[in-house]
């Protein structure tokens, strides 16, 4: 890590052009300055709140749909072709059309992220339901549980670990998509800030915001890992994750 900082510093001295490659000190100073006046946090908070809203939407769509697709072969045959037709079209490819529909604002990044996160969650749920241990379902049947009790008490807890993993995948890809969406079509947020400072040619601040993308991405993932350890203490590796 120290070697990396040293290389960066040496490169910045050699380039001798703070517009192209500001020194580590300049970037740290910019980071501190943005943190002190709060701009770093307001922009990050906007992006993160959008991420949470999009995740909620994606989860509300994908989890019940995936549950139904996993449990009914017939239903899956109806819905799966549409899913497979849409899935290869990345969320990012929706940006131009989304811009036209939603305009520049909150809705576009939320739409793009929700779209992006829906597929991993859906696929994780479907494959989770399909790999539910048949024996557990049968065991519950011999204990006289009703079908709805089996779904609530056996199927849902069975797929929870897979669901949480797919949620992490969804967050990772949605986070990439939101930066793209904000870069193009949002009046604020991290992606917007990065592109704003590039146009202003304030490279240290731009790099500070790029770093903040990583920081937020890291903490979102960490939060989901903690949530998983909390919700699924039985899953393998849960103790190591705590």
């Amino acid at each position: 890590m120290a070697a990396f900082a040293l290389i960066w510093w040496a490169a910045s001295v050699l380039t001798d052009n703070p517009l192209l490659l500001p020194s580590p000190q300049a970037v740290s100073a910019a980071f501190a300055g943005l943190a002190l006046d709060g701009e770093l946090f307001t922009q990050s908070a906007l992006s993160v709140v959008r991420l949470l809203a999009a995740l909620l939407i994606a989860f509300a769509i994908a989890a019940p749909l995936g549950l139904a697709m996993g449990m009914s072969k017939r239903f899956e045959e109806f819905v799966d072709p549409v899913v497979e037709l849409l899935r290869p079209i990345s969320g990012i490819a929706w940006i131009p059309l989304g811009l036209f529909i939603f305009g520049v604002g909150q809705s576009l990044p939320i739409f793009i992220m929700a779209y992006t996160a829906t597929f991993p969650v859906l696929i994780g749920t479907v494959s989770g339901v399909k790999s539910v241990d048949r024996k557990l379902v049968r065991a519950a049947e011999t204990m006289g549980l009703s079908q709805s009790a089996i779904v609530a008490r056996v199927v849902v807890p069975s797929i929870l670990p897979a669901l949480l993993v797919s949620l992490r995948l969804g967050v990772a890809s949605a986070w990439t998509a939101v930066i793209a969406a904000e870069l193009v079509g949002a009046p604020n947020g991290l992606g917007y800030a990065i592109s704003w400072y590039r146009e202003m040619l304030v490279t240290p601040k731009m790099i500070a915001f790029i770093a903040m993308v990583g920081v937020c991405g890291y903490f979102c993932d960490l939060a989901l890992r903690l949530l998983a350890a909390r919700l699924t203490p039985w899953a393998p590796g849960a103790e190591a994750r705590r």
Partner: peptide
């Protein structure tokens, strides 16, 4: 080093790349 760059979404690097 890898782990600190990994969570930085690729798109966020774009302005730097353009620069």
């Amino acid at each position: 080093v890898i782990e600190s760059f990994r969570p930085v979404a690729a798109i966020a690097m774009l302005p730097l790349a353009i620069l």
